[in-house]
């Protein structure tokens, strides 16, 4: 059964990391369309305006200028329209506080960038497997 195309919203201010994700998708032939936001504000905007077609998942960095990842999560969960969004955190921070704070906002996973393997192989593998078995919310709430 062919599944619907899942869009990936990547919120990260680091060009190199964005490029890394693009490369990884390309290298591992992961076909999901990638939409990029530079910070939390932009990400929220894109989601609220429906410019990221559902079903979608969010790859979120925590430390960003402007609106950081944790604040983005708080606003996302506070808004009924976006409350059901599936979010993976991928960040450089290994701090317990960040891990705990993120899970409190019901993230689907917390990845530390340096541990995602050569060329983000693990990330892509995980996303692919995840999207294969998990049914994502489609309609708006």
């Amino acid at each position: 059964m062919p599944r619907e195309t899942v869009h990936v919203l990547l919120i990260d201010d680091n060009d190199v990391d964005v490029e890394g994700v693009r490369r990884a998708f390309r290298k591992h032939r992961f076909a999901a369309p990638l939409i990029v936001a530079r910070d939390g504000h932009e990400g929220l905007e894109l989601l609220r305006e429906g410019r990221v077609p559902r079903p979608h998942v969010v790859l979120l960095d925590l430390n960003m200028p402007g609106m950081g990842g944790l604040e983005f999560l708080a606003r996302l969960r506070a808004d009924p329209a976006t409350r059901d969004t599936v979010v993976f955190v991928q960040t450089t921070s290994k701090r317990d506080e960040d891990v705990v704070a993120s899970h409190r906002q019901n993230v689907a996973g917390y990845f530390v960038k340096s541990e995602l393997g050569v060329g983000l192989a693990k990330l892509v593998e995980l996303l692919r497997a995840y999207l294969r078995v998990v049914t994502l919310p489609v309609g708006g709430a």
Binding site: N14, V16, D17, T92, K113
Partner: peptide
């Protein structure tokens, strides 16, 4: 944290 990010970028870029 802030020192680690550029280091990783260097790592990534050199790898690419």
């Amino acid at each position: 944290h802030d020192l680690r990010a550029p280091m990783r970028d260097v790592d990534n870029l050199s790898q690419w």
